[in-house]
Design a protein around this nucleic acid. Structure first.
Lengths: 108, 108
DNA sequence: TGAACACATGAACAGTTGCTCATAAGTTGA
DNA sequence: TCAACTTATGAGCAACTGTTCATGTGTTCA
């Protein structure tokens, strides 16, 4: 890992970092991204995972699309979403691991 | 890194992860944590770094204390804050690196 | 073409967030 | 003890967030 200390002085970079973290800070979005980290999925599949309404999912997917975290392709009537950024997988895993440690949950 | 995929099904762990990310999702808090990642600091020093009011800093420090991300000790009139959790440093760095890459900023 | 299906979008609303302002609380030296 | 200094806190408020509800858009198949 490079020396990141100088990056703290670059407001644009700091802001961009906060935006990434913000995307991961909501329960529904985290679940969506978690599901997508295990493979691309359609909206109805994501709905099963998250247990919120179709509309709510779509709104969150729009936010994630706008921030460049997921990308979409159409397959007939369905729209298939996938992670647009490998970075996200890393952050999800690091965040989960740390949360699990704090909560004393064993990692396989 | 262990296999984290099972953790996505543990709502408590997922929620804990979102709370960590939430702490990192605000510009002021990110600056505070960034400054602290380079060593413990008093409130007035943090105020210089962040350029917001003393009250605003204190409110954010309270949130970070409540979430267990920073710890405080008194030194005379001053109160010295430091990171309570090594995890945070990792996340700050990973987030910054990724943000810098996205923004095509060179890392030393 | 039209009905059925899958997803997206806009408005509206309650809940939350981060700030300011005023003030309180803790510490030191005179 | 009191004034000066540093930090913390509560109330209040404008801005933002995540959801629901209603409806729109795009696609398939008969």
């Amino acid at each position: 890992m490079g020396d990141t200390s100088a990056l703290f002085e670059n407001d644009d970079v700091v802001y961009a970092a906060t935006q990434i973290f913000d995307a991961l800070s909501d329960f529904t979005r985290f679940q969506i991204l978690g599901a997508l980290s295990q493979g691309e999925k359609g909206v109805s599949e994501l709905q099963e995972v998250t247990n919120v309404s179709q509309s709510a999912i779509s709104h969150q997917l729009r936010l994630l699309r706008d921030r460049g975290l997921v990308s979409a392709r159409r397959d007939g009537q369905r729209v298939i979403y996938s992670l647009a950024d490998e970075h996200v997988t890393t952050l999800l895993n690091v965040g989960l691991e740390h949360a699990a440690e704090d909560a004393h949950v064993e990692i396989a």
